[in-house]
Design a protein around this nucleic acid. Structure first.
Lengths: 212, 212
DNA sequence: ACAAAAGTGTTAAGGATACACCCATGA
DNA sequence: TCATGGGTGTATCCTTAACACTTTTGT
């Protein structure tokens, strides 16, 4: 479960209270019940940590199945990427913590690998889909959105181009309202929103496009 | 397992000899052993159908886990995309057949959905990676490569642009040799090869590139 | 010579980046 | 009116698509 907090991309980790890997940090998750599919299961697992309505997007990442990935009985994990908008601050249990993805604590099992795969997927999809909606509040200024994209991608993006690219693709639209200017003056920023809050591919083919 | 055959993208299907879904067509696969990961397992399963050395690429697709996706005991499938170069014609068992992906027979369970997901993944990766190497022979003319890309993508691509895009990206290189001209004359085509036969992303970010 | 197929040159269009400039507000 | 941050206009660059043209062969 990823969220941009304090200008950094962070992941919700849970400190293990049992062996193996006692006290190491692990991803939330759990066993699959017999009457649910993996997507239902992950939502149920996460519901134990946060309010599920705050989850703006969930998608399958990959299967991790190395026979010795966890000690003891064979355990196969289907990893998911979950996203939470930057403006919510979920109540989380005492044994969990938000950790910056680029400065992870020592993780249990292969969970570091999973987190890095999640970050990579997120970066890629921010570029060719409207996935930003899942990290952004319902309404936001271009500056705020710039901060969110910069944190998720790991490098600075230019506000002017961000707005233009997203507007051209029709994923961003002005609400017509503005925020008050900051304490040191300046033009009041306009508020924007995403036109859709469902995942859509906006830049499907870089090359080898079908002919008209 | 996908291959371009006779100018069409085809998938190797196996006709079930048992209920449920008797006589319907299904994807090759089988159960995961306790001492292997899913990638190893799929190679083992496919080895029962063809010579594994002919598999030029294998990658994870997605997990299919709907509780009722198969009748009877709960069964969760990790689907894979496997590719075979167009110039090999593997010996296949009598109960299997190559079927055109855009004209599938009635499939068992949710296997049609899996095949369509595989085709989509293949199309996308042909555009932004060097994955063509997995469908093409070791050496080929641009015309042949054009046929392969056209079949896999489902629409005609122009030979001239195909060569230019792949050359610019450095994924294609001339061998220096040529093929004899066809029966009706014409300039003898040059032979090309892929510079690498490992998957590489050649067009990583459409937008929001990191600054220089 | 002519037809056919391969390959190259050139132009045009689309989309992204960079940067200068203009706008609106608080002090 | 000045500083500050927001937003727009415009130029440039890069990549690909389209198509005309040249090259090289067989008949």
């Amino acid at each position: 479960m990823l969220q941009v907090r304090d200008g950094r991309l962070q992941v919700l980790l849970w400190q293990r209270a049992q062996a193996p890997d006692l006290h190491l940090w692990s991803l939330p998750g759990g066993r699959l019940a017999t009457d649910e599919d993996v997507a239902t299961s992950i939502r149920r697992q996460l519901a134990e940590k946060v309010d599920v309505r705050q989850l703006s997007h969930v998608e399958q990442l990959a299967v991790f199945s190395a026979p010795a990935r966890v000690p003891g009985a064979r355990l196969i994990a289907t990893a998911f990427l979950g996203l939470v908008p930057a403006d919510v601050d979920p109540v989380i249990p005492a044994d969990t913590r938000w950790c910056a993805v680029d400065d992870l604590p020592e993780t249990a099992f292969d969970h570091e690998e999973i987190v890095l795969a999640a970050r990579e997927r997120l970066s890629a999809k921010l570029s060719y889909t409207n996935l930003g909606f899942a990290l952004a509040p319902a309404e936001f200024t271009v500056s705020e959105l710039r901060g969110i994209y910069s944190a998720a991608l790991g490098y600075q993006v230019a506000a002017t181009n961000l707005q233009r690219v997203l507007s051209r693709r029709g994923v961003l639209e002005p609400t017509g309202r503005t925020m008050p200017a900051g304490p040191s003056g300046g033009r009041p920023p306009a508020l924007f929103r995403f036109t859709s809050r469902d995942l859509q591919v906006t830049d499907p083919f870089a090359v080898f496009r079908p002919p008209n």
